[in-house]
């Protein structure tokens, strides 16, 4: 049974072909690492899954249902969430406003005037979610732009987890974090898996990818070059697929050090 299926997705930006017919799938509760060199098309592929980019050809299926034509909001409603590398936070708004952006609960004021955003409820639930993922913020009411990188990351993660996601895509979630915080993210991925939530992890840190994933998909020049079961592969094999054979030994040695 598959949760997400990507079939023959192509994408070009003007004259630049980024994806040439990508096929891959993710099962429920499966953690899949997506690796590849810079420019291999990882982020573009993920953005066609969330709907930020429209695929030129091919189809994206969730639970066997074709979601290719849906906009990003509709896909979020179906449980596809992404934590972007740039975090995509609104820096002047507070944590709850960011976490609930696009999904604010409303109530009637004095039981009369409709459409009032229920800020008290947003703050309460945002606080609970942040506590659940073990985040420590200086204040729920300060603009998130004033937070540290790790704290902002927590807000972005909380946003992806608050609405019962089925698939969470993480684009370089550990790139800007301190060592202790990286462990926190890896633990979080394991917890999501235990809850049956599927994760796609994009990362350059192959040690992290090998540590938490079930499968590793290598993207090379806009195509799937390899689809490896993590338990039966090695750093050397992954690196060989990423760089495509040449200078393999040297690159692998370099990676195992880092």
């Amino acid at each position: 049974m598959t949760l997400l299926e990507v079939r023959g997705v192509t994408k070009r930006f003007g004259p630049v072909d980024v994806l040439h017919g990508v096929d891959f799938s993710v099962g429920p509760g499966e953690v899949v690492g997506l690796v590849g060199d810079n420019g291999a098309g990882k982020s573009t592929l993920m953005k066609t899954i969330t709907g930020i980019h429209a695929a030129d050809a091919g189809a994206i299926l969730l639970d066997g249902r074709d979601i290719t034509a849906l906009d990003p909001g509709a896909r979020r409603d179906l449980g596809v969430e992404m934590i972007y590398q740039d975090l995509s936070l609104a820096g002047q708004q507070d944590a709850a406003s960011n976490i609930f952006l696009g999904r604010e609960p409303v109530k009637r004021l004095f039981g009369l005037i409709p459409g009032f955003v229920d800020k008290a409820r947003m703050d309460r639930e945002a606080g609970a979610m942040l506590a659940r993922i073990g985040a420590r913020l200086p204040s729920l009411h300060r603009p998130v732009g004033s937070f540290s990188g790790g704290q902002q990351q927590s807000v972005a993660i909380a946003r992806a987890l608050t609405f019962n996601p089925r698939l969470v895509i993480m684009d370089e979630p550990t790139a800007a974090l301190a060592v202790r915080e990286v462990q926190g993210v890896l633990d979080l991925i394991r917890r999501l898996k235990a809850e049956g939530i599927a994760v796609i992890l994009i990362s350059h840190r192959l040690n992290d990818v090998l540590a938490v994933t079930d499968r590793i998909v290598v993207l090379r020049h806009g195509r799937v070059d390899a689809d490896l079961v993590t338990a039966r592969t090695s750093m050397t094999e992954v690196v060989r697929h990423i760089v495509g054979g040449a200078d393999m030994a040297e690159a692998a040695a370099h990676e195992s050090k880092g």
Binding site: T50, G51, I52, D71, P72, G73, A74, R75, R76, D77, M82, Y84, D86, S88, L89, A90, G91, Q92, Q93, S97, N98, L101, G102, R103, E104, V106, L109, G115, F116, V117, R159
Partner: peptide
């Protein structure tokens, strides 16, 4: 106080964030 208003501020703040949130 409305969702429209909050979305307005978020959009003015960061178009990328607004897009990512599905607005």
């Amino acid at each position: 106080y409305t969702r429209f208003g909050r979305h307005t501020l978020a959009l003015g703040d960061s178009e990328g964030a607004a897009r990512a949130a599905g607005l």
